[in-house]
Design a binder for these strands. Structure first.
Lengths: 238, 238
DNA sequence: ACCTGAACACCGTTCAAGT
DNA sequence: ACCTGAACACCGTTCAAGT
């Protein structure tokens, strides 16, 4: 589990990409707040100030981490399926890239339009909404939000914040569940009814699939509403 | 605009609430990363270590900030409207509390079940989904996600990251738009088509209303699908 | 081109002490 | 009960210098 702690490494020169990859690994292991110029330098056997040759400031390192995640997205090939189905495939591909790195995803929403791979993902998403009949303002608003909503899906996975070591994780889940069960049944009956599933996600795959169904269902609803408006505006068109 | 900078204030003893409120104001003005034990102490005319009498550690200060925002939510009274309509009203109330404090909302998803006011919001949300026919696992998964999706709605508002001073803001929007317009029209035709709306939100109210329509439409879709399943399982019920 | 070393301003936090 | 003061380990960043 613990990441390369093999002390100072003599090796070929550093690269932006190598630093960003080890930063992602460090975030995966210990959280985003563990990603520090000084710790990364130590892992690479180098002085903290050496990193400033590769990145002008820490924010550019975070940009590099985000870019790596966007580059992991395996966009499905375009096909002739209905646009809603293709949209679901695109969002699933984004989700698949994010799930291994939940600690990093908070970096993505503000950086998607500044990253080449993020732009490719955005282009695919927006073009499918356009095919659904949305005007440019709606396309931008809904498309941009959908991508952030996928990020939020990872952030909000029940039980995601618990530790990953099995025993400590079980303890945390039990403690969370107990704290919910102990609430007033008069004021919080439904929280208590849901306590198990709020404390931990029994099946993450079902959590993701069901909420994706919801998002796609919502997009379909608003696209259909636009069609109805168009029908109403052009009464006996066709 | 600038916040009470009137130097050391001699006054009645500090309180958790007063510190959390000034922390929110500081985040509104200068972003969450400006919220520092030392700066807050300075604003209150007190030594940094004085804050440790009120909060065991900085994380508890962040808890207090989140609790204040949850307490701002004005939950609508229960009524006899369809559950989807009531759910929309609850989400609108949450959104109204968040919009004045976009820099703070990232604190909320991980803290909602640890805050009394957050639990009240969760209870209302879950109880309406239960009324929609969802089982406890789905209720927890969808309800928890919906609340995070509202937070993401604020985070992802186009143009939200630009500065708030009018002139600098116009410059940032123009620069963002120009950078999108300059992309390859062959590879990014739809991004270019949407460039204006991606660079800035012409009407935030419409952005929020339209995406809320989408979320409510999605919840309705999955609840209806459950009804259909039930109908199929009990063929000529009724 | 790529990295070191010294230095600076700024963090969160502990602990003993004051009133 | 509420706050001060000194101290510690840890940040990001600049700049001049080395090879």
């Amino acid at each position: 589990m613990a990441n390369r702690r093999t002390g100072p490494q003599r090796q070929e020169p550093l690269s932006r990409e190598a630093i960003a990859l080890s930063a992602i690994a460090l975030a995966d292991d210990e959280g985003l707040e563990a990603v520090t110029i000084r710790r990364l330098a130590q892992q690479h056997g180098v002085t903290p100030t050496a990193l400033y040759w590769h990145f002008k400031e820490k924010d550019q390192l975070l940009d590099g981490m985000a870019e790596q995640l966007f580059a992991d997205v395996q966009l499905p090939p375009e096909d002739s399926a209905p646009w809603q189905h293709q949209l679901r495939s695109v969002l699933e591909a984004f989700l698949a890239a994010l799930r291994p790195h939940p600690a990093v995803v908070a970096l993505l929403p503000s950086r998607i339009l500044a990253s080449p791979a993020g732009l490719a993902l955005t282009e695919r998403t927006l073009s499918l909404l356009r095919r659904g009949g949305l005007q440019p303002e709606r396309t931008a608003e809904v498309g941009g939000y959908l991508l952030s909503a996928i990020v939020a899906l990872v952030t909000a996975e029940p039980g995601r914040e618990h530790p990953s070591e099995e025993e400590a994780r079980d303890d945390a889940i039990r403690a969370k569940r107990a704290s919910l069960i102990a609430l007033s049944p008069r004021r919080f009956p439904t929280v208590i009814w849901c306590a198990d599933a709020l404390a931990n996600c029994a099946s993450p795959d079902e959590y993701y699939a069901f909420n994706l169904d919801m998002l796609i269902g919502g997009v379909t609803t608003i696209a259909d509403a636009l069609d109805d408006d168009a029908d109403a505006a052009l009464p006996r068109s066709e």
